[in-house]
Amino acid sequence: MKLCSPLGHSVTSTLTGKARPHSLEGLRIGLLDNTKAPVDKMLAHLARRIEERIPGAKPFYVSKSVMSRPASAEAMESLRQNTDVVINALGD
């Protein structure tokens, strides 16, 4: 029996991001909060652990305005300017 596929094709683009580091030592580590509980407290704890365990690493905290919307242009620019890698925390 021959059937017509109900699936949609999609346009897949490949992003070329910055190469990931071999180590986090001495890097600026962005922490992006999506504002859902308890992400802010988790990221504060993670920041403490980063400072304790990764020599020279510096956490940099940024929060979104609304959990379900993309981060603002200002937040993204701040991450671009002040971080080397970013942890995007999706609390729910």
Partner: peptide, 22 residues
């Protein structure tokens, strides 16, 4: 955070247009 860089696909392919399935 320190894994070798991988290609990041911006969207997930979910099938092919005009496909016929036997």
């Amino acid at each position: 955070l320190t894994l070798p860089p991988a290609k990041l696909d911006a969207v997930s392919p979910v099938g092919a247009f005009g496909g016929r399935v036997e």
